[in-house]
């Protein structure tokens, strides 16, 4: 009896199989796949690396410059990076066909030029970030290309000078 009934269910349902890869995958418009970083927008500020729960995004200085690396092999596809990105450089795509024969192909990098201190030569941060910051909050040009230490020094010196000028010996 149950056999007849289950047959009835099967026949009425018909074929449900999605014949992927010949047919389209069973994706909904909301699916979160791998992310893409737009190098022309990225500042190299590293906000994304700070929220990434699995450290799939890392920002490390190297000989080439400041490198933002995305290792999709560790990504948990939460999309938090796209939410925090101040430059809107990260987009969440619907890509899921990420199979690779080696781990190397799962990495993508954006290399940023590093701005160096014009006084002591110490690396400050990614050049693109400095440009972006200058755009929103104009900093006096003489301070832009200084590392925090040199900037402080110069600032203290100039303040001291000014104070010296106004409250000098009468």
């Amino acid at each position: 009896m149950s056999l007849v009934k289950i047959l009835e269910i099967a026949l009425r349902t018909g074929r449900v199989t999605r014949r992927y890869p010949v047919e389209e995958p069973l994706l909904t418009p909301e699916f979160r796949g791998s992310i893409e970083v737009d190098p022309s927008k990225c500042w190299g500020c590293g906000a994304c690396t700070k929220v990434c729960p699995s450290n799939a995004l890392t920002l490390t200085p190297s000989g080439k410059g400041l490198v933002l690396e995305y290792f999709v092999g560790r990504c948990v596809f939460c999309g938090m990076c796209a939410e925090v990105c101040p430059a809107k450089a990260i987009t969440v795509t619907k890509k899921f066909e990420l199979a690779s024969k080696n781990l190397r192909d799962l990495r993508s990098r954006v290399v940023h030029e590093v701005l160096r201190c014009s006084v002591c030569g110490a690396p400050i941060t990614a050049e693109a970030e400095v440009r972006a910051v200058v755009k929103v909050s104009p900093i006096t040009e003489e301070y832009v290309a200084l590392c925090p230490r040199c900037r402080k020094e110069r600032f203290t010196k100039s303040v001291a000078l000014r104070i010296g000028a106004s409250s000098g010996p009468s």
Partner: peptide
């Protein structure tokens, strides 16, 4: 097979088939 309807719904609501995120 019936469960698959729920999985697709879960992805549509949350962006992940396992309601993650």
């Amino acid at each position: 097979r019936i469960r698959e309807h729920v999985m697709v719904l879960a992805e549509y609501l949350t962006g992940s088939r396992k309601t993650y995120g």
